[in-house]
Design a binder for these strands. Structure first.
Lengths: 103, 103
DNA sequence: ATTATTATTACGTTATGCGATATATCGTAT
DNA sequence: ATACGATATATCGCATAACGTAATAATAAT
């Protein structure tokens, strides 16, 4: 299940991209930003696993750092994918909510 | 991966609930409605597997039928879960898109 | 007859979630 | 200053189960 209880959006990849759209961040900072944004607190395994996959897909990239923190940033492809995804989800949500009120 | 390429929302459970919000339907009809709604064509394994899980969770229920088709309908709990989910996803999409234009 | 409908089943892949672990840094009390 | 607890930050391993694909089957329609 990508959705824990199906009453909350919790796709780690999308949440990470949306977080990075607000600026470059390292993993731990994303955890907090995502929790504030969505109410979902990603566990470390979930977060860092998703980060590795996103980097491998070229949607985010790892940035230089002097300390032990590993910041990431959106790539142009990542920003484009996020935009397309969110635009689509917006439409689905609009239709779904409209249908619900018509019940 | 709940998202095939991460450029399209494709969570089967949510798509099914959103489809049923438009009225009771059997599986094959959902396939077509979902494709029209979202551009995603769910394979039979994906669709019927998700239907079984949703029914077990009490979010949809199987309706009576005379022929071989097996229609389903939203339960009140399913409608509530969908509403909560879509409302949340709307907020995330709004914030994410806002962040994207500010880059 | 051939195509479209409609559903079931089986199977492999892999994302996800959880927990354990590790280290560095910060704050605070002694 | 020192020591100690709490917070910050990341890695790893594993079990579960959702997902995707495909094969199969049977009924209905053209």
């Amino acid at each position: 299940m990508s959705i824990a209880d199906l009453d909350r959006f919790a796709d780690p990849s999308v949440l990470i991209l949306a977080s990075l759209a607000g600026g470059d961040k390292h993993g731990y900072a994303m955890m907090e930003d995502i929790e504030e944004l969505s109410g979902v607190r990603l566990g470390p395994g979930t977060l860092y696993g998703a980060l590795a996959r996103l980097e491998k897909r070229g949607l985010i990239r790892s940035l230089e750092s002097d300390d032990r923190r590993r910041p990431y940033g959106l790539t142009p492809g990542g920003a484009a994918a996020l935009k397309e995804y969110l635009t689509g989800v917006n439409k689905i949500a609009a239709v779904g909510l409209q249908r619900l009120v018509s019940i």
